[in-house]
Design a protein around this nucleic acid. Sequence first.
RNA 1: GGCCCUAUCGUCUAACGGUUAGGACAGCGGGUUUUCAAUCCGUCAAUCAGGGUUCGAUUCCCUGUAGGGUCACCA
Length: 471
Amino acid sequence: MSDKVVTRFAPSPTGFMHVGGVRTALYAWLLAKKENGQFILRIEDTDKEREVEGSIGHIQESLKWLGLNWDQGPDIGGPHASYIQSERLDLYKKYGEQLIEKNFAYADPYTEEEIENFRKKSEEDKKPFLYREHRPENPPMWDGTKPLRFKVSELKRTEWKDIVWGDLSAGPEALDDFILIKSDGYPTYNFAHVVDDIEMGVTHVMRGQEFISSTPKFLALYEALGATPPLFATTPPIMGPDGKKKLSKRDGAKDLLDYEKEGYLPEAMINYLAFLGFNPGGEKEIYTPEELIKVFDLTKIQRSGARWDDEKLNWMNKEHIKLLPKEEIEKNILAILPESMQNPKLVPVILERISKWGDVKDMVARGELDLFFKAPEFEKNKLIFKNTSPEKITENLNSAIQTLSSLEEKNFTYENIKNSLMSIADKLESRGEVLHPVRYALSGKDKSPDPFIIAEILGKNETLSRLQNAI
RNA sequence: GGCCCUAUCGUCUAACGGUUAGGACAGCGGGUUUUCAAUCCGUCAAUCAGGGUUCGAUUCCCUGUAGGGUCACCA
């Protein structure tokens, strides 16, 4: 146990990174960081057909955005380079030959049609299809043009331990002669990942529960290779909004980088993702990545699937924004505001209305900030407050102008404006009699930020002018 | 269908076999505010069902039900 912890994230480059895959990566990363171990990024590109160009770069960019830095990987190399499986074909071939020698592998002589027929026959007989029941007696030499199959030598019940799920087991029907190397010369996932995990000294394998049922095969392979299997930690799936199926593109599983574009904070995404299927206990919910590393514990990962909930993510993102220094918040908001709206005083007004940076853009698009930059056009009757007469409104607006005029330019601040207006308002039957007309005069709207902050941002001149205009 | 697995508020979850089953999101109500937002306070809300084991079961066992996963020259 003195060995260093080594974890890996091993995606196949078949498209964008979605949140489910990222969470598995996150758990592997958290463990490596917590144990001061190594986190490896390995690309499993053994299916040429499904490969999508640009995926590798996209995957790396996604991980980098979150700050999940790897210690070994395709771009930075490491003691076990290459970290791209298509560049390691010789290694898999070597392992394959070794298995043939030890009588743990053989060439598959059948055509795909023949196997398909076996399969159909089993289906008709209502029996599960097992290739090993058709295992050829005298398989040909393996020349690389035929698939190489693993030869199950002992049909037994497999029992193993999973850090998250506890004791697991499966009967001998889970064991079959699976393909190690395809006829195109590429290894299958089943083979390549085991070889690489052995070669790279991976100690903890984290992956989704879709792999539980094939674990007996992996274990048999480890045994045949004379290698000690790693520890397994299986993560539950992330479910779609209906809670019944795994989150898929159809239910809105998004490219992780879309969340970056929408202005989510990576530390909020990490917090949310980590807590979707993991909980350290206690009542604290907002964790920085550093805090998460400290409390992370594989045994506290959940076993059942969790639904993706955008609302909770938004809440969490807002909480993380609040943790940011003031200057940082200001910088981010100003960066999104158009040239004509670069006023730092708007920041607090905006901040309380957004949960992610992208919302700023929406506010601008909806024209919610326009009132700070151009005098509103209003309809006269909107100035009326409840049963207050027009004359009374005019009178109230006049007293507002009067009291605000007495404020010096440099004292034209939120507190002073509020005090001045409130002193008038409190003398009236209802504060609304003056505050409503003032709000409307300043903003042209019934619903707006409070009139005091609007006045401060507009400044004395503009404020008085809008009030006068309303009269 | 075979095999494997899972099951606490609407959602994410907490609870050495002993708690009024806790927290958070959402919802609802209220305070601050004329309003929206924000914020604070309060409130609603759950152990899938049935059997065991036990003085005592959310927790352990069995059955049922529901759900998930897997049965590829995909990972």
